[in-house]
Each structure stands twice: as C-alpha cells, then as structure tokens.
C-alpha cells in the first residue's frame, strides 16, 4: 500500500514543555489509522501539525507528497478536518454552515449546492437543512461538524475525537459514516481515547502517551504483545479507597501490572483462573469488599496498561 502520509521525527514544544517528542510513522492510502491515547498524550497536537495549524518545532511530514512545512497550502487542499470542538455557527442553519465551509474550499455555484445537498443526505439531516444549528442536539451538531470537513472530498480526513460527548445512537452513526467514507477510498486519521472505537474502525493503531508513539500495529499485532496476559477487573463501592488495595496486590507474586481507574483496580496476570483466588484473598485482608469481578480478554486497554503501567483513562 502506498503511503499517503509520512511523519518523520515530528516534534512540537510549547516553551519548555514537550507536547510531541519526535514521532514517525506512515499511513497507507485508503487506510483508517487510529491514534489511541489518553487526554494530553499529544494526539491533537499531532493533528494540528499535520493540518498545518501548528508548525513543528523540528521534523517534517508529507501528505500526498507535499511537505507540511514547505507546501502547506497544497496540503490544505487535500486534507479535511473534523475538529474535536463543534466548529460551526449556531445562528446559521445547517445548510448555511455547509455553504460557508464549502466556499472556503473553493466550491461555488451548482457544485457547492450539490455537494451540500449530498452531505446533508449523507448525515441524515436533509429534512433539517434550514434549521439553525442552535436548535440541534449534540449528536446532530457532531454530524454537521463532520459533513463540513467532507464537502471538498479530501483525500485524507483528520478526525479528532469526533464522538466526544455524543449519545450512543449518534456515536454509532458517526462510526458507520467513517467506515462508509473509507469504503469510498478516503484515508482517515482518527484520534480517540475510546479503545472500542479504535478496535472497531482501524486497520492499524498507534498508541500515544506523553507525546510519544509507544506502539504501532494492527489490533492483533498489538495484542500479541500481551498474549500471555489477562486482566482482572475488580470493582469497588464508592466508600473504598483503592490505592492501598492496589499497593497490596502489586506486591503479589506473578502480578505483572496494577492500576486503578474510577472505582476499579485492573490487575494484569499471566493466568486469571489461577490468580483469582489469591487476589480476592489479598483484597479481603485489607478489609475491603469487592463489588464485582471480571476477567477481560486481552485488548488494547491491556496493551496500554502493559506498556505504561497505567490504565487508559478519559
């Protein structure tokens, strides 16, 4: 597969802080590539550099053969952006918003009209074209936000956490839309901190943490790194302090990684069936009561835990 996007030691500093610490990877044409990582991992900064909004401190990237530092205007012509924020005008209708964003990409006349109509059909809001965006639900706004990035039919689409804050139905619609766009040949760079989305959508996944790309590969390739591991998820009530319990479990033999999330402790072990009883006993020693216990199949969350020692939080 031909690489349409190539990052070469891309670095971005804000003063003394390193937001992106020299990442390199390639995305093939027609691929859906997800950047998975917690908030603050550097995903949005990476997309901002690739979309020419932020200049890299060092390094470069090419999109469609054009350098983002030397030919930014050529890059802008072939990319589409769906920002994390709803970048629309509330007091304009859905149609007026799309007309405006289409004009910004050089569309006009009948071509603009056709593309806007198609986009509204595509996102299922043709019947609400003349309604002001301020009257829309969060999910509907998200869909218009996506449509605004597609009007000029970009070769590469950057989608920065497009499902944040939407209801399950709208999330489903957005994920299906991404798949459809990809079927039509569009290359998608998708950032998310939702493991399930990355797993469902992506041909390949890059895991980012603290500005670094810590793993890259297909879902199966990534999970293969931890195929000898399973995750025990222990759920506690609101009155339980999970920190000393996690500390106690961490001391146990054969426990690989332990981290706490919201009212839960994740324990990475080589064999869950063998480790359940001793872990439960250890928790009982602390006086805490387990509310629920679940054995999880190896997944991207486990990969992240394995690589960083931390859970993939929001």
């Amino acid at each position: 597969m031909n690489a349409i996007l190539q990052l070469n030691q891309l670095i971005r500093q804000f003063g003394e802080a390193w937001a992106v610490k020299g990442i390199s990877f390639e995305i093939g044409e027609g691929e859906i590539f997800s950047l998975l990582g917690p908030n603050g991992a550097g995903k949005t900064t990476t997309i901002s550099m690739l979309s020419t909004l932020l200049a890299p401190t060092k390094g470069d990237a090419t999109i469609g053969g054009y350098s983002i530092t030397k030919r930014p205007n050529e890059v802008r012509k072939i990319i589409g952006i769906v920002p994390q924020e709803i970048a629309l005008y509330d007091e304009l209708t859905a149609q007026e918003n799309l007309n405006f964003w289409g004009q910004l990409y050089g569309l006009s006349g009948s071509q603009l009209k056709t593309r806007v109509s198609e986009a509204l059909e595509h996102i299922g809001l043709a019947d609400k074209a003349k309604q002001r965006v301020s009257t829309f639900s969060g999910g509907m706004k998200r869909r218009v936000n996506i449509a605004a990035g597609l009007l000029h039919r970009p070769r590469v689409l950057f989608m920065d956490e497009p499902t944040v804050g939407v209801d399950p139905q709208s999330r489903r619609a957005i994920l299906d839309m991404v798949k459809n766009l990809n079927k039509q040949g569009m290359t998608v760079l998708y950032t998310t901190h939702y493991m399930e989305e990355a797993e469902e959508l992506s041909n390949r996944i890059g895991i980012m943490d603290h500005g670094e790309l810590i793993a890259i590969g297909t879902r199966n390739e990534l999970i293969r790194q931890i195929e000898q591991s399973e995750i025990l998820q222990l759920q506690f009530g609101e009155d339980v302090n999970t920190t000393p319990i996690a500390q106690a479990i961490r001391q146990m033999k054969d426990v690989k990684r332990v981290d706490t999330t919201d009212r839960a402790i994740l324990v990475m072990v080589p064999n869950a069936a063998v480790m359940i009883a001793p872990v439960v006993a250890k928790v009982s020693e602390t006086g805490a009561r387990i509310k629920a216990l679940e054995v999880k199949e190896p997944n991207l969350e486990a990969v992240f835990l394995n690589l960083t020692g931390r859970a993939l939080r929001d």
């Binding site: 802008r76 910004l104 050089g106």
Partner: peptide, 13 residues
Amino acid sequence: ENATLSRMMAAPA
C-alpha cells in the same frame, strides 16, 4: 475560542 477560526485557517486560503 470556539475553533471556527482554526478551521478556517486549515482551509487553503
């Protein structure tokens, strides 16, 4: 603040 300016800046203009 609401990112419409950066969306404009990402356009070929």
